[in-house]
Design a protein around this nucleic acid. Sequence first.
DNA 1: AAGCTTTGACCAGGC
DNA 2: CGCCTGGTCAAAGCT
Length: 434
Amino acid sequence: MASPSPTINSNPRSFSSLPPQFMKTSSFTNNNNNSSNMMTMDDDHHQNNWTTFEHNHQQVGLDVPKFKSVQPPSLPLSPSPISPSSYFTSFSSGFSPTEFFNSPLFLSSPNAFASPTSEAFAGQSFNWKNSSGEDQQQGDKEDEKNYSDFSFQTQTKPTPVFQSSSSMSQVQEPIKKQDIWKSNEPTKQTDYSSERVAAKSDQYPTSQSISSEMAPSKPETHSNSVPRSGYLNYTASASLSVREQRRSEDGFNWRKYGQKQVKGSENPRSYYKCTHPSCSMKKKVERSLDGQITEIVYKGNHNHPKPQSTRRTSSQPSSSCTNSGISDQSVVTLGNPQMEPVSIQEDSSASVGEEDFEQTSQTSYSGGDEDALGPEAKRWKGDNENDGYSGLGSRTVREPRVVVQTTSEIDILDDGYRWRKYGQKVVKGNPNAR
DNA sequence: AAGCTTTGACCAGGC
DNA sequence: CGCCTGGTCAAAGCT
Ligand SMILES: [Zn+2]
């Protein structure tokens, strides 16, 4: 196709004419190594998006012109007076967004959000050290040993709400989040299932051991008792280096390839891609000025197990998405540092949150498989989540809810609580027994 | 030296 | 058809 730009022979853009999926895929696959991804952002537009949820917390401090200015003051373990955020830290320190879901939330302390610590959260997932919090990490280098352990341990319980709508799932957890996994199943119905961690990976069970973290095996969780306010230690993550932090996210390595601003909000959105050679997994992170992560969206699946180069691997959970057939997009939005609502969506429209959403954070997974997806490749469409509540207009954070929907029959259902099945029935229209 | 981040520009989809 | 917006590209710079 015509390439406007002279410089490059075949402009990538020209490629774009191809189905997005292909393009992406190809790019990833082929170019991953060589082509550098960079990102760009155009900030010109801002208006509304799904941003809605996040507003509240953002207000907290945002003096900074841009996200960067803020720096996490307390990287070190020192908990801030407000420690609430510390909770967050825990999550972050340990893990990946996926896992986040699992992380415990505290609903009790809404205020806590304000604390800088929250950044930690972000930090984990992204960076924290520096300022920005985003993923950008720049500097630090340390190990992540600790976080892995503690982070997950604490789990409280989420209130999962499952909806069966089209294919989309959102999870909002006031208290804790769950991991959402997606497994591919031939089934096509939209069941909603949510599990915390998943356990089902078709391909790489190993990597997907997220469950382990959340799994009951971790007795140590303090969830029952007071939230881990006291455990700021987790925060230790502060000292993690960028790279490490990345890994800490979900155990995978990510490369940022772009950044942009969302229309309605000031929060810049960063785009990340898995660095593995032929992995098409992508992630979109939105951070508030404060540096807190307001939303994380995952797209695609990993083709490989998580790199365990670091040290402690066994316990690390991996949020790998190995859905071959199904594509999921997951978005995590964090309205407040404390909350981590998770919503999972698939590309189609997602109507979630019908009831009340607040905006805490949400996580959604949408699959962007290239193969299967034909239709929208370009826009990730995670917004849908908001749609539902956006109409409401007011989004206060009240009760977080977790709604997970997936196309696959098996989803994730783990909130950290244990459930006993007391019945099973076949619902017509649904191949899967309920 | 390699990899990653930064940043502006370009492209494509939706309206 | 044009505008708006989101997403990606890719050179340059930094670590
Ligand atoms: Zn990957």
